[in-house]
Design a binder for these strands. Structure first.
Lengths: 81, 81, 81, 81
DNA sequence: CTGCCATTTTACCGGC
DNA sequence: GCCGGTAAAATGGCAG
């Protein structure tokens, strides 16, 4: 393999390995989350409901004053900004 | 190709072609949507805002009484159903 | 709301509803595609591979070859003969 | 809220917050991965192919071969030499 | 041509 | 161990 390609090959290897390391980290964090759920379940909490709670908390910030927001959007669409 | 595989091959072809036909239909509908937007734009409406309006209208049905819903979920998670 | 804006508001309503109708159509077609896949799966076909085949058929031969060559190049650089 | 439920409520809060903290971590790692890809792209690497390579490396050799064979089979059945 | 947003695909997880 | 549904990743398409 010629030089330029050799350099690119090294760099490619670096990138791939770096991503793989980060993915491994991510998997570990995911594992920890799973453990928290498992522990919670063993204490009698309902996993599905817990997930719903988390989901709802996540989406909350978006949905402030929807009605007003929608009205504003209609006005903007009509050029009444 | 043997019989069983021949039959499977025919069936495979059927499936693939059926999906391709449906995808074509879908593309046509998408095209029509694009045209509506193009027309709207030429009349002076702001496309981005139109899209936002549509998005908000789509998500509306979900978000009724979030606060109450969340409370209910917490109660359920606590076994206070 | 003044006249001009009233007119625009009517038009806006038209546009939004028209797009929503078309989006509904699109969703129905997407649903039909899902059904074809479900049926295929129940007959023993592998959905992931089906999708791959469909993607390949969508691609222009030229792009397809280019893509495959690039992949080989990367694999070679990483010693993944 | 009675004592037992009070205790459970505290515990619920702990759990929810713990998971939210871990999810935040996970999001940060995902962000770092995105950055690596963005950097790679700016250096001229093809992101799609990078991802493909990573996927192949993740797969067990056995599964990888099986998948490839199935694809060839489907292609043959469809006359996509 | 770049970045953003929607859609589509894949992976994961809990339940049966 | 599969199935269904939910969340995450990835691809594609559009506006600026």
């Amino acid at each position: 393999m010629a030089d330029a390609q050799g350099i690119a090959a090294d760099r490619l290897k670096q990138i791939v390995e770096k991503v793989e390391r980060l993915e491994e980290e991510k998997r570990e964090v995911a594992e920890q989350i799973k453990e928290v759920f498992a522990e919670a379940k063993s204490e009698g909490f309902d996993i599905r409901t817990l997930r719903q709670v988390l989901r709802l908390r996540r989406m909350k910030p978006h949905d402030r004053n929807e009605q007003e927001e929608l009205l504003e959007l209609y006005k903007a669409a009509l050029g009444m900004a």
